[in-house]
Simulated scan of single mutants.
Amino acid sequence: MATFEKGILGGFSGKVGNVVGARWRGKNVMRSLPQRGNYTATAKQEEQRLKFKTVIGFLSPIVDVLNSYYGSAQGDKSRANLATSYHLKNAVLSTPTGAVMEYAKVVISKGDLRGIDGGTVAAAAEQTLNFGWQDNSGQGKATATDAFMVVVYAPELNLFYTNIAVATRDATTATVTLPNFMASFEVEVWVSFSKPETNLAAISTYMGAITVL
């Protein structure tokens, strides 16, 4: 293994030719590719690979949300890296037919901001979701102008809808209109609050599954 600090493009991650670049303990490192043999992964290793693939596939479309509102970066680990680690350990389940996400354990945002109290969601005509909550401004770091965030996922379509500034905390109600193609599909819903122009957010709340009208 070799370390390097400068190069034509600086540090790199991934495979280039017969070497692999990565970050290790704060340094750029290069390693030669291992020689392939007749190695066969164990059942446990295959299970872990499938879980990792499932988590990455699920989180990738909302990586911008995660990198903005999932806690605080730690050293070389981005917010999205931390989110991936959490979901791999806590929110993916192996089943006889493959790995699946446990939506109730999914966390879209994470932080010290006060979350939603008394949250409700109901489907209405023309692909709309109506939300309600209590105004808990003044509790902890919560303020009236905190932004209400909505993330919706349609498992059958493998598609997300996100809106990070639907309304303010003191509004206590909000309406989101989903894309037409989500009509009649069951969707998973998460909500949270964030403080505008900062990375401060609340721990997201899972609102459950609901069928879009």
Rank of each mutant, 00 (worst) to 15 (best):
T211Q: 09
F4V: 04
N130R: 12
V151I: 04
G37Y: 10
I164W: 05
E47W: 09
Q48F: 08
A142H: 06
K27F: 08
T95Q: 08
V152C: 02
E156T: 13
S137A: 10
V100G: 07
T42W: 04
V187C: 05
N18P: 15
G119A: 06
T40S: 12
L213S: 15
V152R: 04
A125T: 09
V65W: 07
Y39L: 11
P155G: 05
A183C: 09
A171T: 02
A41I: 13
N38V: 07
D64P: 11
L113P: 01
K44Y: 15
A167T: 01
K51G: 04
A174H: 00
T143S: 10
L82H: 06
A22E: 13
L59I: 01
G118P: 02
R31K: 13
T175C: 02
A142I: 03
A209H: 11
N18Y: 13
K89G: 06
F52Q: 12
A80Y: 13
K105Y: 11
Q74M: 14
E46H: 11
T145P: 05
L178P: 14
G37M: 05
G11A: 11
T95S: 06
P179H: 01
I210S: 04
V189C: 00
R23W: 15
E46W: 11
K15F: 06
Q35C: 15
V106G: 00
L159R: 14
G119V: 04
F181A: 07
K44H: 12
Y153P: 01
S85V: 12
Q127S: 12
R23I: 14
K44A: 14
S68G: 13
N67D: 03
